[in-house]
Simulated scan of single mutants.
Amino acid sequence: MNANPRPRVMVLFGGRSGEHVISCSTASGVLRAIDRDRYDVVAVGITPTGRWVLADDDPDRWAIAPGRLPQVEDTAAHVLLPQGSDDRAVQVLEPGSAPRVLGEVDVVFPLLHGPFGEDGTVQGLLELADVRYVGAGVLASAVGMDKHMMKLVLAGSGLPVGPYVVLHPDERDEALVRERVAPLGLPVFVKPARAGSSLGISRVDDLADLPAAVAAAAEHDPKVVVEAAIVGREIECGVLGGRDGGRPRASLPGEIVVADSHTFYDYEAKYFAEQDVRLSCPADLAPDVVARVQDVAVRTFEALGCEGLARVDVFVTPDDEVVVNEINTMPGFTPYSMYPRMWAASGLDYPALVDELLTLALERPTGLR
């Protein structure tokens, strides 16, 4: 551990995925909320090309603002993780200078969304470096990122998932795709299998539009998932804890209501059209339905072997059945995101939530557990 009595936290954000901007925005919220009397903070950004750099520890620098989308730039102060379990020091490499020791980092808060961050890749790197980190491990992160694998695991665990079809890169014949998708009925939702923030997702109401939707999804991931539409309310539930922290617990659920100007809760609605979205938290559900949503959320979390945090998205049908849509192992984490809002409604405010996640991570060893 760091000799400083205050644990040192590396807040890690940015990354190579299409969700780079969202990750920066998430980091803005955490950098502002983290208790500087309890933690030393080192801000590290990952550029769109994958370079790790020392970043500005200024929350305003990473917030989405009118006319400005934040992006991590190469500062030439490149960050190098420890190279083994017997090496605890993080180093900074700068052109023309000897490596500079930044000091030990006790825990990493990887605020990365999408591929090359939320999918187990960075988690594996941190495991190799023997550095503790917030959130799900390698396997849970990878399964949670891949909508195909996620549905297989959840269905195998007896959890309800909707009908779907998977299209692999060699399955692009338009006639064959229409034949496979037609039994799902209309509308369908075409999604990249391993992307988040609704990037590349299309609603298809006419099979003639299916090839264009598949092509749009394939821009983000060569593997594409086509899901049948489920009639119901979109409900989300936060989960916190797990493993050594005890059985995970669920927040009060929240509900997303999107204006008619959007056909679904798309990328534009999530991040750039707040006036078109209403986030109701807690959701107006009967107590027994709340209990079932929370139960399904915790069971989903446990089925994947998650740790730390996750947001589970479900549909509640007109018959009050609960169907899992997906799990996000690193959900949007700004103070205005649904995950922190659901915990605030459940009695755990944003700074306390950040502190609890760091505490859970510091208590959890790396490696097999």
Rank of each mutant, 00 (worst) to 15 (best):
A345Q: 13
L207A: 11
A43N: 06
C24N: 02
V324C: 11
P331H: 05
E118G: 04
A310G: 10
H148G: 03
S23Q: 01
P183E: 09
A216F: 11
A140R: 01
V312I: 11
S261F: 00
A136I: 01
P318D: 07
V44R: 12
R16Y: 04
C306K: 00
P222Q: 14
V298R: 02
V72W: 11
D313Y: 08
E104H: 13
V122A: 04
D266Q: 07
A228L: 04
P160D: 14
I64C: 15
C281M: 04
P340W: 01
G18Y: 01
A195K: 03
A303S: 14
P282D: 05
G120F: 14
V225P: 05
L167M: 01
S28N: 10
G332F: 06
R341E: 13
S97E: 15
S17V: 08
V293D: 08
L186Y: 08
F13T: 06
P351G: 12
R51D: 13
L152V: 12
E171G: 08
V324P: 03
N2E: 12
V324T: 10
A33M: 05
E363C: 00
L69P: 05
R194V: 01
G196F: 04
P48M: 13
L207H: 04
D58H: 14
V107R: 10
W62V: 06
D221P: 09
G67C: 05
P115N: 06
A3N: 10
G29R: 14
Q123W: 01
L309Y: 02
I22C: 13
P318C: 12
A33N: 03
A215D: 15
L125S: 06
A297N: 13
G241E: 03
V323L: 15
P365M: 09
E255L: 09
N2P: 09
R51H: 08
V298N: 03
E174T: 13
R247G: 06
G305Y: 00
V190R: 04
F189P: 02
V143G: 00
E94M: 13
S25D: 15
A63Q: 13
E274K: 12
L176C: 10
R51F: 02
A43G: 02
A3F: 03
P248E: 02
L152A: 09
R100E: 15
I235A: 09
R38Y: 01
E234M: 06
F315M: 14
L12D: 08
P211S: 12
R172A: 10
G308W: 01
E236N: 12
D130K: 07
P66Q: 09
Y336K: 11
W62S: 00
L279P: 04
T329N: 02
L210G: 10
A55T: 09
S251C: 11
D284H: 09
A195H: 11
G241R: 03
G117H: 08
W52T: 06
A195V: 09
A129C: 12
P82F: 05
R299H: 04
M342V: 11
E302W: 00
N2M: 01
D221F: 07
L139N: 03
R172T: 15
E94R: 15
